[in-house]
Amino acid sequence: MLITGASAGIGAALARVYAVEGWDLILTARRERALQALAGELAAGGATVAVVPEDLADPAAPRRLFDAVAARGLTVDGLVNNAGFSRTAGFLATEPEVQAAMIRVMLTAPVELARLFAPGMVERGYGRILNVASLAGRMPATGGDTLYGPIKSFLIKASQGLHLELRGTGVHVTALCPGYTLTEFHDANGTRAEVSAAYPAWMWQTAEHVARVGYAACETNRPGVTPGVMNTLLAGLAKHLPDRLALAMVGGHAKRLKRI
C-alpha cells in the first residue's frame, strides 16, 4: 500500500489501519524524519515498511515515485492519495505558485499516480485506490478558500468515474470525504483558533475514526463515503438546496472563520 501525505494526520492514521490489516506499506511525504518515525513505530508492530520521501508539488514527482518503487522491486496493490494542504488568505492574496502547488498536490498528482499504478492492479486482478477528498468537495465553494473545495470536487468525480471504469476488475476505488478532523491541517493553514472557536467539539472527528471508515468503505468498494451522520446530512442538504441558499450557507461558514 502506497500512502501519500503519510507523515501526519489522516495519512498516518490510514498507515496504522492498513498495517494492522496486514498490508506492507510504502510511505511518502515531504518530511522524511516524520516518515521514518512512523515507519519505526509500524515496523515495531510487525509491519514491513519502506520510506520514499517525495514532494508532490514537483510536477516530476509522480513518475519519480513510480520509478523509485519499481527500482526497489516493490509491487503496489494499493494506493492512498492523501497528500494535501490549503491556503485560506483568499484567492487574490495567495501567491500563484502556491495555488499551482495546491492543484498539483491534490488534483494532478492523484490522477497521475492512479494512471501509473492502476494498470498493474488491473493486470493482477486486485487493487485498492482510496482518494482522500473532503466534505468541502460536496459543498459549494467557500470564499477565501476558493480552490480547495473545487479541487476536492474534481477528486470525488474522478473517483466515481474510475470506480465505474474498473468495476469487475478486482480494483476498488473510493473517495473518502471527511469533515472537520483533528489533525495538523488547520495548524498548517493558520485557522486552528478560528475553527476551534467556530465549531463545537461534537462536530470534530478523530483521524483514526476517519481512517477506519475509509478503509472499510474501500474494502466493500463503495464509490464514496462521508464519515459522520452530521457531515452526511450537511452534504445532502447542500446538494438539494437552491444555489442561492446553499451559497448563503457556506458564506456564513466563511464569515465564522473571518475569511470574507
Rank of each mutant, 00 (worst) to 15 (best):
S7C: 11
I10S: 08
G11Y: 13
A13F: 12
A13S: 07
V17N: 02
Y18F: 12
G22R: 04
W23G: 05
I26V: 15
I26G: 01
R30Y: 09
R31V: 02
L38W: 01
G45C: 08
D55A: 08
R64N: 03
F66T: 07
G73L: 13
G73D: 11
L74Y: 04
T75V: 12
G78K: 02
N81H: 04
A83S: 07
L92Y: 15
A93L: 13
E95N: 09
E97K: 11
A101I: 01
M106T: 11
P110C: 12
V111C: 13
E112D: 14
L113H: 01
A114C: 15
F117P: 01
P119D: 04
G120P: 02
V122E: 07
G125H: 01
R128Q: 11
L135W: 01
T142E: 11
T146I: 14
L147D: 06
I151E: 04
L155P: 00
L155T: 01
A158M: 13
A158F: 14
Q160M: 14
Q160L: 10
G161Y: 09
L162H: 01
T169S: 15
H172R: 15
L176E: 07
C177D: 05
G179F: 03
T181W: 13
H186A: 15
T191S: 08
T191V: 06
V195M: 08
P200K: 05
W202T: 08
W202R: 13
E208W: 14
E208P: 10
G214F: 04
Y215M: 02
R222E: 12
M230H: 10
L234V: 15
G236M: 10
A238W: 03
H240W: 15
L241Q: 05
P242E: 12
R244P: 00
A246D: 06
V250K: 03
K255L: 06
K255I: 09
K258D: 15
R259E: 10
